[in-house]
C-alpha cells in the first residue's frame, strides 16, 4: 500500500507530530513518501529525510505554500494522490484545515484523529470528546484519508536517509490569500509537544495570576496551558486551551491548577503519563484522574511549589 504523509512544519523546522504520524503511516504497511510543501523549506525536507521509514521526500517549495492555505495545499495533494492508497497528516490545525478538502475531492470519508491503526483498513478514533472510542473500517479498494492524533503514537526514529525529490507547485484556485499572522512569542516549549505542562483554570481568578504558574513552568521547562473556563473568562488567549475544543496534550507530567476537571478538559489531557491536581475543592472531578492530588489553596501552594523546586535546584 503506497502511503503519502504530509509533513507539518512552520517553514523553519519540522514538527515532531510528523515523525509521530509516521508511525501510523508505517503501520499501514507500505512504502511511505513524505510531502514537504512550504516556502524556503529545504532544511525541513532535510529533516524529513531523516525520519526512519521514509522512501522519499517530495519537496514542493513555492511561496503559495508558505502559509499552508487549505485551497492550495489540497490542490497539490490531489495532484499527487493518484499514486497513493492512503494519505495521512497530523491532526493539527493545519492538517484539519486542508485534509477534508482532499477527502471530498476524492469522494471518500475522512477518518479524523485516529489513535490506533488496528489493521490496514481498521482504525480507532475518539468520539464524544474521548468519552467513547469508535472503531471504523474502510471499504476495500477506497483510498484512506486520515488525520493522526500525534500524542497517540511514538515518534519514528530519526536515522533514515531518504532521497529528496523536488516537485513543481500545483495551480491553486487563487480565491484566498494570506493577510497577516499574530503569533504569541514565547520562550517556553509549545503546548502540543511539551514534556511538562502546567495549566490553570477558573480558580486562577485573573490573567495576572498566571505568572504564578509561569514561574513554576519555567523551572520545569514546561508549557503553560489553561482550561476552557479560564479562556472563556479572558484570563489567557485561546491557544492556551487544553481540551476537546482546544489542544490535545499527553505530556510526561501535567499539573492542573485550579481546574475542576470538566469532561471537556479531561478529553484534552487524560492521556498524560502523570497528572497532578492542585485544587481547594476536594470533591473536584480532577482528583479522580490525578495520580497526585493536593487539596490546597493554589495561591499558597503554587508559590510554595516554586520555592520548593528552587530549593531543589530546578
Amino acid at each position: 500500500m503506497a502511503v503519502l504523509l504530509i509533513a507539518e512544519h512552520d517553514n523553519k523546522s519540522l514538527k515532531d507530530s510528523t515523525s509521530k504520524a509516521m508511525t501510523a503511516a508505517i503501520a499501514l504497511g507500505g512504502p511511505v513518501d513524505i510531502l514537504v510543501a512550504g516556502h524556503s523549506v529545504r532544511s525541513v525536507a532535510d529533516s524529513a529525510a531523516k525520519i526512519a521509514g521514509a522512501s522519499k521526500v517530495l519537496l514542493a517549495d513555492d511561496p503559495q505554500y508558505a502559509h499552508q492555505l487549505a485551497e492550495n495545499m489540497a490542490a497539490l495533494i490531489l495532484e499527487l494522490s493518484g499514486k497513493y492508497d492512503a494519505i495521512l497528516t497530523p491532526a493539527s490545525p493545519s492538517g484539519k484545515n486542508y485534509m477534508p478538502r482532499v477527502a471530498a475531492a476524492l469522494d471518500v470519508a475522512q477518518i479524523s484523529e485516529i489513535v490506533s491503526v488496528d489493521a490496514a483498513d481498521t482504525f480507532t478514533r475518539p468520539v464524544y470528546a474521548g468519552n467513547a472510542m469508535q472503531q471504523v473500517q474502510v471499504p476495500s479498494g477506497t483510498k484512506r484519508v486520515i488525520t493522526v492524533r500525534p500524542t497517540a503514537f511514538k515518534a519514528a526514529e530519526l536515522n533514515g536517509t531518504a532521497a529528496i525529490e523536488t516537485i513543481g507547485a500545483a495551480k491553486g484556485p487563487g480565491t484566498s490569500e494570506f493577510v497577516r499572522e499574530e503569533l504569541s512569542k514565547s520562550e517556553r516549549p509549545e503546548l502540543a509537544g511539551a514534556r511538562v505542562v502546567v495549566s490553570g483554570g477558573r480558580g486562577m481568578q485573573s490573567g495576572e495570576n498566571f505568572h504564578l504558574l509561569e514561574k513554576v513552568a519555567d523551572r520545569l521547562k514546561a508549557a503553560v496551558g489553561a482550561s476552557r473556563a479560564a479562556v472563556d473568562a479572558g484570563f489567557v488567549p485561546n491557544d492556551y486551551q487544553v481540551g476537546q475544543t482546544g489542544k490535545i496534550v499527553a505530556p510526561e507530567l501535567y499539573i492542573a491548577v485550579g481546574i475542576s476537571g470538566a469532561i471537556q478538559h479531561l478529553a484534552g489531557m487524560k492521556d498524560s503519563k502523570v497528572i497532578v491536581a492542585i485544587n481547594k475543592d476536594e470533591e473536584a472531578p480532577i482528583f479522580q484522574v490525578a495520580d497526585y492530588g493536593l487539596v490546597a489553596d493554589l495561591f499558597k501552594a503554587v508559590p510554595e511549589l516554586d520555592e520548593e523546586l528552587k530549593k531543589q535546584g530546578y
Partner: peptide
C-alpha cells in the same frame, strides 16, 4: 485560530 496564535486570510 491556529497553533500559537492567529492567522488572517
Amino acid at each position: 485560530e491556529v497553533d500559537g496564535g492567529l492567522q488572517t486570510v
